[in-house]
Nucleic acid binder design. Structure first.
Lengths: 155, 155
DNA sequence: TCCATTCTTGACTAAAACAGTCAGGAATGA
DNA sequence: TCATTCCTGACTGTTTTAGTCAAGAATGGA
Protein backbone atom coordinates (compact mmCIF):
# COMPACT_ATOMS: atom_id res chain seq x y z
CA UNK A 1 0.00 0.00 0.00
CA UNK A 2 1.58 3.19 -1.12
CA UNK A 3 1.23 6.67 -2.55
CA UNK A 4 2.05 6.81 -6.27
CA UNK A 5 4.37 9.41 -7.74
CA UNK A 6 1.46 10.94 -9.62
CA UNK A 7 -0.39 11.59 -6.39
CA UNK A 8 2.68 13.00 -4.73
CA UNK A 9 3.41 15.24 -7.69
CA UNK A 10 -0.17 16.40 -8.03
CA UNK A 11 -0.29 17.28 -4.36
CA UNK A 12 2.96 19.21 -4.59
CA UNK A 13 1.77 21.13 -7.64
CA UNK A 14 -1.49 22.00 -5.95
CA UNK A 15 0.22 23.16 -2.77
CA UNK A 16 2.53 25.37 -4.80
CA UNK A 17 -0.44 26.81 -6.67
CA UNK A 18 -2.15 27.36 -3.35
CA UNK A 19 0.85 29.34 -2.17
CA UNK A 20 0.55 31.52 -5.28
CA UNK A 21 -3.21 31.82 -5.02
CA UNK A 22 -4.38 35.32 -5.92
CA UNK A 23 -1.27 36.11 -7.98
CA UNK A 24 -0.46 35.52 -11.65
CA UNK A 25 -1.00 32.16 -13.35
CA UNK A 26 2.01 29.88 -12.97
CA UNK A 27 3.44 28.25 -16.14
CA UNK A 28 3.81 24.49 -16.07
CA UNK A 29 7.54 24.76 -16.54
CA UNK A 30 7.97 26.89 -13.47
CA UNK A 31 5.90 24.45 -11.45
CA UNK A 32 8.10 21.64 -12.68
CA UNK A 33 11.22 23.39 -11.47
CA UNK A 34 9.76 24.52 -8.18
CA UNK A 35 8.49 21.08 -7.30
CA UNK A 36 11.20 18.93 -8.84
CA UNK A 37 8.80 17.12 -11.13
CA UNK A 38 9.76 16.02 -14.69
CA UNK A 39 8.59 18.82 -16.99
CA UNK A 40 6.78 16.63 -19.50
CA UNK A 41 4.99 14.81 -16.74
CA UNK A 42 3.72 17.97 -15.12
CA UNK A 43 1.55 18.80 -18.12
CA UNK A 44 -0.11 15.42 -18.02
CA UNK A 45 -1.00 15.82 -14.38
CA UNK A 46 -2.19 19.39 -14.79
CA UNK A 47 -4.52 18.37 -17.61
CA UNK A 48 -6.20 15.90 -15.29
CA UNK A 49 -6.49 18.50 -12.57
CA UNK A 50 -8.03 20.93 -15.04
CA UNK A 51 -10.52 18.38 -16.35
CA UNK A 52 -11.57 17.76 -12.76
CA UNK A 53 -12.18 21.46 -12.38
CA UNK A 54 -9.51 21.99 -9.73
CA UNK A 55 -7.34 24.38 -11.74
CA UNK A 56 -7.88 26.81 -14.59
CA UNK A 57 -5.46 27.35 -17.46
CA UNK A 58 -4.59 30.24 -19.76
CA UNK A 59 -2.52 30.02 -22.92
CA UNK A 60 -0.18 32.50 -24.45
CA UNK A 61 2.48 34.59 -22.82
CA UNK A 62 1.69 35.33 -19.21
CA UNK A 63 -0.41 32.18 -19.32
CA UNK A 64 -0.22 29.30 -16.91
CA UNK A 65 -2.24 27.56 -14.23
CA UNK A 66 -4.12 28.75 -11.18
CA UNK A 67 -6.40 27.20 -8.58
CA UNK A 68 -10.06 27.41 -9.55
CA UNK A 69 -11.07 28.12 -5.96
CA UNK A 70 -9.67 28.88 -2.54
CA UNK A 71 -7.09 26.51 -1.01
CA UNK A 72 -9.43 25.89 1.90
CA UNK A 73 -12.04 24.56 -0.51
CA UNK A 74 -9.86 21.96 -2.18
CA UNK A 75 -9.30 18.63 -0.47
CA UNK A 76 -6.72 15.93 -1.06
CA UNK A 77 -9.58 13.58 -1.92
CA UNK A 78 -10.45 15.78 -4.89
CA UNK A 79 -6.85 15.84 -6.03
CA UNK A 80 -6.49 12.08 -5.73
CA UNK A 81 -9.75 11.43 -7.57
CA UNK A 82 -8.68 13.77 -10.36
CA UNK A 83 -5.44 11.88 -10.86
CA UNK A 84 -6.25 8.28 -9.98
CA UNK A 85 -10.01 8.12 -10.39
CA UNK A 86 -10.67 6.90 -6.87
CA UNK A 87 -9.23 7.23 -3.41
CA UNK A 88 -9.59 3.58 -2.52
CA UNK A 89 -10.41 0.71 -4.80
CA UNK A 90 -11.75 -2.44 -3.27
CA UNK A 91 -11.55 -5.91 -4.72
CA UNK A 92 -12.90 -9.21 -3.51
CA UNK A 93 -10.32 -11.79 -4.48
CA UNK A 94 -10.31 -12.23 -8.22
CA UNK A 95 -13.41 -10.14 -8.67
CA UNK A 96 -14.61 -6.66 -7.95
CA UNK A 97 -16.85 -6.39 -4.95
CA UNK A 98 -20.38 -7.19 -5.91
CA UNK A 99 -19.38 -9.00 -9.09
CA UNK A 100 -21.80 -11.82 -9.68
CA UNK A 101 -18.95 -14.34 -9.81
CA UNK A 102 -17.81 -13.57 -6.27
CA UNK A 103 -18.40 -16.68 -4.20
CA UNK A 104 -18.40 -14.74 -1.00
CA UNK A 105 -21.11 -12.33 -1.92
CA UNK A 106 -23.38 -11.42 0.94
CA UNK A 107 -21.61 -13.63 3.45
CA UNK A 108 -18.00 -12.55 3.03
CA UNK A 109 -16.38 -12.05 6.41
CA UNK A 110 -13.48 -10.12 4.98
CA UNK A 111 -15.10 -7.58 2.73
CA UNK A 112 -16.21 -5.36 5.65
CA UNK A 113 -12.58 -5.12 6.75
CA UNK A 114 -11.57 -3.52 3.46
CA UNK A 115 -14.70 -1.42 3.34
CA UNK A 116 -13.90 0.06 6.73
CA UNK A 117 -10.34 0.71 5.69
CA UNK A 118 -11.58 2.45 2.59
CA UNK A 119 -13.83 4.66 4.66
CA UNK A 120 -10.98 5.50 6.97
CA UNK A 121 -8.63 6.46 4.14
CA UNK A 122 -11.28 8.35 2.20
CA UNK A 123 -12.29 10.28 5.26
CA UNK A 124 -8.72 11.22 5.91
CA UNK A 125 -8.21 12.53 2.39
CA UNK A 126 -11.46 14.42 2.49
CA UNK A 127 -10.50 16.30 5.60
CA UNK A 128 -7.08 17.50 4.54
CA UNK A 129 -7.29 20.72 2.53
CA UNK A 130 -4.58 22.54 0.63
CA UNK A 131 -4.90 25.40 3.09
CA UNK A 132 -4.26 23.03 5.96
CA UNK A 133 -1.15 21.64 4.35
CA UNK A 134 0.07 25.11 3.58
CA UNK A 135 -0.46 26.32 7.10
CA UNK A 136 1.16 23.21 8.50
CA UNK A 137 -1.24 23.27 11.38
CA UNK A 138 -0.31 20.50 13.73
CA UNK A 139 -3.77 19.05 13.74
CA UNK A 140 -4.80 19.85 10.22
CA UNK A 141 -1.80 18.59 8.28
CA UNK A 142 -2.22 15.00 9.29
CA UNK A 143 -5.16 13.53 11.05
CA UNK A 144 -7.58 16.16 12.30
CA UNK A 145 -8.65 14.89 15.73
CA UNK A 146 -12.25 16.01 15.24
CA UNK A 147 -13.24 13.53 12.59
CA UNK A 148 -11.48 10.71 14.35
CA UNK A 149 -13.65 11.40 17.35
CA UNK A 150 -16.69 11.41 15.11
CA UNK A 151 -15.68 8.12 13.54
CA UNK A 152 -14.91 6.60 16.92
CA UNK A 153 -18.28 7.55 18.33
CA UNK A 154 -19.97 5.81 15.43
CA UNK A 155 -20.59 8.67 12.99
CA UNK B 1 -4.79 2.91 -3.41
CA UNK B 2 -5.96 -0.61 -3.19
CA UNK B 3 -5.69 -4.06 -1.64
CA UNK B 4 -3.76 -6.50 -3.81
CA UNK B 5 -5.00 -9.96 -4.63
CA UNK B 6 -2.14 -11.46 -2.65
CA UNK B 7 -3.27 -9.65 0.48
CA UNK B 8 -6.86 -10.63 -0.07
CA UNK B 9 -5.91 -14.25 -0.68
CA UNK B 10 -3.56 -14.40 2.29
CA UNK B 11 -6.25 -12.98 4.55
CA UNK B 12 -8.79 -15.48 3.31
CA UNK B 13 -6.41 -18.39 3.79
CA UNK B 14 -5.59 -17.25 7.30
CA UNK B 15 -9.25 -16.82 8.22
CA UNK B 16 -10.00 -20.31 6.95
CA UNK B 17 -7.08 -21.70 8.94
CA UNK B 18 -8.35 -19.79 11.96
CA UNK B 19 -11.72 -21.47 11.55
CA UNK B 20 -9.97 -24.87 11.56
CA UNK B 21 -7.66 -23.97 14.42
CA UNK B 22 -7.19 -26.91 16.76
CA UNK B 23 -8.09 -29.50 14.13
CA UNK B 24 -5.99 -31.35 11.56
CA UNK B 25 -3.56 -29.52 9.25
CA UNK B 26 -5.26 -28.31 6.08
CA UNK B 27 -3.64 -29.22 2.72
CA UNK B 28 -2.94 -26.33 0.38
CA UNK B 29 -5.21 -27.80 -2.24
CA UNK B 30 -8.17 -27.83 0.08
CA UNK B 31 -7.49 -24.23 1.07
CA UNK B 32 -7.41 -23.30 -2.60
CA UNK B 33 -10.81 -24.83 -3.19
CA UNK B 34 -12.37 -23.44 -0.04
CA UNK B 35 -11.18 -19.92 -0.70
CA UNK B 36 -11.39 -19.82 -4.47
CA UNK B 37 -7.71 -19.08 -4.89
CA UNK B 38 -5.64 -20.48 -7.81
CA UNK B 39 -4.04 -23.68 -6.50
CA UNK B 40 -0.51 -22.91 -7.65
CA UNK B 41 -0.69 -19.46 -6.16
CA UNK B 42 -1.76 -20.67 -2.76
CA UNK B 43 1.55 -22.45 -2.19
CA UNK B 44 3.50 -19.30 -2.90
CA UNK B 45 1.50 -17.33 -0.39
CA UNK B 46 1.64 -20.04 2.24
CA UNK B 47 5.41 -20.21 1.97
CA UNK B 48 5.62 -16.52 2.80
CA UNK B 49 3.26 -16.95 5.70
CA UNK B 50 5.36 -19.84 6.97
CA UNK B 51 8.62 -17.92 6.65
CA UNK B 52 7.05 -15.14 8.66
CA UNK B 53 6.20 -17.68 11.34
CA UNK B 54 2.45 -17.29 11.04
CA UNK B 55 1.72 -20.85 9.97
CA UNK B 56 3.38 -24.23 10.37
CA UNK B 57 3.55 -26.91 7.70
CA UNK B 58 3.77 -30.71 7.65
CA UNK B 59 4.56 -32.86 4.65
CA UNK B 60 3.34 -36.27 3.71
CA UNK B 61 -0.13 -37.70 3.83
CA UNK B 62 -2.25 -36.03 6.47
CA UNK B 63 0.09 -33.07 6.08
CA UNK B 64 -0.92 -29.49 5.47
CA UNK B 65 -0.90 -26.09 7.10
CA UNK B 66 -2.02 -24.81 10.47
CA UNK B 67 -1.83 -21.53 12.37
CA UNK B 68 1.24 -21.28 14.55
CA UNK B 69 -0.71 -19.52 17.30
CA UNK B 70 -4.20 -18.56 18.34
CA UNK B 71 -6.36 -16.52 15.93
CA UNK B 72 -6.61 -13.76 18.52
CA UNK B 73 -2.84 -13.40 18.47
CA UNK B 74 -2.48 -12.88 14.74
CA UNK B 75 -3.16 -9.46 13.27
CA UNK B 76 -3.77 -8.36 9.71
CA UNK B 77 -0.61 -6.26 9.94
CA UNK B 78 1.42 -9.42 10.44
CA UNK B 79 -0.25 -11.06 7.47
CA UNK B 80 0.30 -8.05 5.24
CA UNK B 81 3.94 -7.73 6.27
CA UNK B 82 4.50 -11.41 5.58
CA UNK B 83 3.17 -11.07 2.06
CA UNK B 84 4.09 -7.54 1.00
CA UNK B 85 6.94 -6.65 3.30
CA UNK B 86 5.29 -3.52 4.66
CA UNK B 87 1.85 -2.20 5.45
CA UNK B 88 2.46 1.25 4.07
CA UNK B 89 5.36 2.43 1.95
CA UNK B 90 6.04 6.12 1.79
CA UNK B 91 7.82 7.95 -0.99
CA UNK B 92 8.76 11.57 -1.41
CA UNK B 93 8.36 12.30 -5.10
CA UNK B 94 11.06 10.54 -7.05
CA UNK B 95 12.91 9.55 -3.95
CA UNK B 96 12.35 7.54 -0.85
CA UNK B 97 11.70 9.63 2.19
CA UNK B 98 14.97 10.68 3.69
CA UNK B 99 16.97 10.01 0.53
CA UNK B 100 19.75 12.54 0.31
CA UNK B 101 18.51 13.68 -3.12
CA UNK B 102 15.12 14.74 -1.80
CA UNK B 103 14.89 18.48 -2.20
CA UNK B 104 12.19 18.76 0.39
CA UNK B 105 14.04 17.09 3.16
CA UNK B 106 13.41 18.58 6.56
CA UNK B 107 11.07 21.26 5.28
CA UNK B 108 8.61 19.23 3.23
CA UNK B 109 5.05 20.31 3.98
CA UNK B 110 3.57 17.22 2.42
CA UNK B 111 5.54 14.39 3.94
CA UNK B 112 3.69 14.60 7.29
CA UNK B 113 0.43 14.07 5.45
CA UNK B 114 1.59 10.70 4.13
CA UNK B 115 3.22 9.81 7.41
CA UNK B 116 -0.03 10.35 9.27
CA UNK B 117 -1.91 8.33 6.69
CA UNK B 118 0.59 5.52 7.10
CA UNK B 119 0.12 5.56 10.85
CA UNK B 120 -3.62 5.46 10.44
CA UNK B 121 -3.52 2.50 8.07
CA UNK B 122 -0.90 0.62 10.06
CA UNK B 123 -2.82 1.09 13.25
CA UNK B 124 -5.93 -0.21 11.62
CA UNK B 125 -4.20 -3.36 10.40
CA UNK B 126 -2.57 -3.93 13.74
CA UNK B 127 -5.87 -3.89 15.57
CA UNK B 128 -7.78 -6.33 13.41
CA UNK B 129 -7.13 -9.93 14.44
CA UNK B 130 -8.15 -13.14 12.73
CA UNK B 131 -10.37 -13.90 15.70
CA UNK B 132 -12.14 -10.58 15.24
CA UNK B 133 -12.78 -11.23 11.57
CA UNK B 134 -13.99 -14.71 12.36
CA UNK B 135 -16.36 -13.54 15.04
CA UNK B 136 -17.60 -10.74 12.82
CA UNK B 137 -17.96 -8.54 15.83
CA UNK B 138 -19.50 -5.29 14.70
CA UNK B 139 -16.77 -3.22 16.23
CA UNK B 140 -13.87 -5.55 15.77
CA UNK B 141 -14.26 -6.46 12.13
CA UNK B 142 -13.71 -2.99 10.84
CA UNK B 143 -12.49 -0.07 12.84
CA UNK B 144 -12.38 -0.82 16.54
CA UNK B 145 -13.68 2.37 18.17
CA UNK B 146 -11.18 2.17 21.03
CA UNK B 147 -8.03 2.88 19.09
CA UNK B 148 -9.71 5.61 17.13
CA UNK B 149 -10.46 7.32 20.39
CA UNK B 150 -6.87 6.87 21.45
CA UNK B 151 -5.61 8.28 18.15
CA UNK B 152 -8.04 11.19 18.35
CA UNK B 153 -6.96 12.12 21.82
CA UNK B 154 -3.35 12.30 20.65
CA UNK B 155 -1.99 8.82 21.28
C1' DT C 1 11.05 -50.85 0.89
C1' DC C 2 7.88 -48.63 -2.12
C1' DC C 3 4.66 -45.25 -2.99
C1' DA C 4 1.16 -41.72 -2.82
C1' DT C 5 0.71 -37.42 -0.67
C1' DT C 6 2.09 -33.02 0.37
C1' DC C 7 5.19 -29.35 0.93
C1' DT C 8 9.58 -26.60 -1.23
C1' DT C 9 12.02 -23.99 -4.34
C1' DG C 10 13.00 -21.38 -8.05
C1' DA C 11 12.41 -20.20 -12.69
C1' DC C 12 9.28 -18.61 -16.04
C1' DT C 13 5.56 -15.72 -18.32
C1' DA C 14 1.64 -12.54 -19.56
C1' DA C 15 -0.68 -8.54 -18.51
C1' DA C 16 -1.36 -4.37 -16.27
C1' DA C 17 0.16 -0.27 -13.95
C1' DC C 18 3.52 3.15 -13.39
C1' DA C 19 6.54 6.69 -14.81
C1' DG C 20 7.82 9.10 -17.90
C1' DT C 21 8.95 11.00 -23.08
C1' DC C 22 7.90 13.07 -27.37
C1' DA C 23 5.90 15.40 -31.26
C1' DG C 24 2.66 18.09 -33.60
C1' DG C 25 -0.91 21.41 -33.06
C1' DA C 26 -3.87 25.27 -31.34
C1' DA C 27 -4.75 29.42 -28.71
C1' DT C 28 -3.20 33.82 -26.83
C1' DG C 29 -1.22 38.26 -26.29
C1' DA C 30 2.45 41.46 -27.48
C1' DT D 1 3.45 37.44 -37.13
C1' DC D 2 5.78 35.52 -33.56
C1' DA D 3 7.16 33.82 -29.10
C1' DT D 4 4.90 31.72 -25.39
C1' DT D 5 2.17 28.47 -23.37
C1' DC D 6 -1.27 25.07 -23.16
C1' DC D 7 -3.48 20.64 -25.50
C1' DT D 8 -3.74 16.01 -27.13
C1' DG D 9 -2.55 11.63 -27.97
C1' DA D 10 0.71 8.26 -28.98
C1' DC D 11 4.78 6.00 -27.64
C1' DT D 12 8.27 3.55 -24.58
C1' DG D 13 10.81 1.28 -20.79
C1' DT D 14 10.49 -0.55 -16.16
C1' DT D 15 8.28 -2.55 -12.32
C1' DT D 16 4.63 -4.90 -10.11
C1' DT D 17 1.08 -8.08 -10.13
C1' DA D 18 -0.75 -12.39 -10.79
C1' DG D 19 -0.17 -16.20 -11.84
C1' DT D 20 2.01 -21.00 -14.05
C1' DC D 21 5.09 -24.77 -14.17
C1' DA D 22 8.39 -28.36 -13.15
C1' DA D 23 11.61 -30.89 -10.53
C1' DG D 24 12.68 -32.29 -6.01
C1' DA D 25 12.47 -33.52 -0.97
C1' DA D 26 10.11 -35.01 3.21
C1' DT D 27 6.59 -37.86 5.40
C1' DG D 28 3.72 -41.63 6.73
C1' DG D 29 1.29 -45.77 5.46
C1' DA D 30 0.98 -50.34 2.99
Amino acid sequence: MRITSSIEYATRLMVTLAAEHGGDPVPAERLAEADNVPADFVSQILVKLRRAGLVTSHRGSAGGYALSRKPAEITLAQVVRAVDGAVFEEVCGRYEVGAKDCRHQGQCAISPVWTKLGELVTRYFEDVTLAAILEQKAGACGAPPEWLEKLASGK
